[in-house]
């Protein structure tokens, strides 16, 4: 069985992003780019499923400009068997991303598609659900545990009320939450080995994917800043301040 995993190139999670003064977006020149942390967890989980003997092949997929292949190389160094790059310079929104994944599912027939639960740049949290919808497959989002049993997966999901367990028939779409696993570190020999692994490249046209209607970004602004507060010296001072505001009795 094959597992398809989505990998998105995003601004590294440690970077304090800056909004461009003209409101046209955020500054990305010279900014460190990395694999979306949730996607790293998705890759790790796919590799663990393979290492446990439940999968034969892990295929990493990205969509974006040529430079996004860096993140595919990271996925290959972690242990993915091969990679697919859907090359485009367009801004790919979730519904179009889902259509691309669907086209690749039709080609590769994976039993599981593992995606990060959200990308830390646009914070949309949509692609897995949209892919599940157009594939008419089950979805198990925000997964913190995946157990495979034949043609079914039991997935524990992190939801607002606690932990929800779903049983889904395969093939299924699963999106990874933070506590699913801790991704492995990539070792130098693996990076060298990854250079010899295959990356197949497709365009949207080659996959016969029609881009979905898109949301138009009119402008980007910095968020409202909280007023800087004060340091208090003692609990008495703190309690007095909170009482004055009527926040404690």
């Amino acid at each position: 069985m094959k597992i398809l995993v989505g990998v998105k190139r995003v601004v590294d999670y440690n970077v304090r992003i800056q909004v461009k003064p003209d409101g046209s977006g955020i500054a990305t020149n010279g900014v460190k780019m990395s694999m979306n942390p949730f996607d790293e967890i998705a890759i790790e989980e796919a590799l663990r499923i393979k290492e446990a003997g439940h999968a034969a092949e892990v295929i990493a997929v990205t969509m974006g400009p040529k430079v996004a292949q860096e993140q595919l190389r990271t996925a290959l160094a972690m242990g993915a068997d091969r990679a697919i790059h859907v090359e485009t310079d367009d801004d790919i929104q979730p519904l179009t991303a889902a259509r691309i994944f669907k086209a690749l599912c039709d080609k590769e027939s994976p039993k599981i598609v593992l995606l990060g639960k959200q990308a830390i740049d646009d914070d949309n949290s949509q692609t897995a659900q949209m892919l599940a919808a157009i594939s008419h497959w089950p979805q198990a989002t925000f997964a913190s545990s995946i157990t495979l049993d034949g043609d079914k997966a039991t997935v524990i999901r992190e939801v607002d009320a606690g932990l929800e367990t779903l049983s889904v028939d395969l093939p299924a779409i699963i999106s990874a939450d933070l506590r699913l696993n801790e991704p492995r570190y990539v070792k130098l020999p693996d990076i060298m080995k990854a250079k010899r692994k295959t990356i197949d490249t497709f365009t949207l046209d080659e996959l016969a994917v029609e881009p979905a209607p898109a949301i138009k970004i009119l402008k980007t602004s910095p968020p409202a800043k909280r007023q800087a507060g004060i340091k208090v010296e003692s609990v008495d001072e703190l309690v007095a301040a909170l009482k004055e505001k009527g926040l404690v009795k």
Binding site: R16, V19, I120, D123, P213, I217, L218, K219, T220, P223
Partner: peptide, 13 residues
């Protein structure tokens, strides 16, 4: 977006 470190104004199609 970006964990609330930027706000985008968007128009639905």
């Amino acid at each position: 977006v970006y964990a609330g470190n930027a706000i985008i104004t968007v128009e639905a199609p």
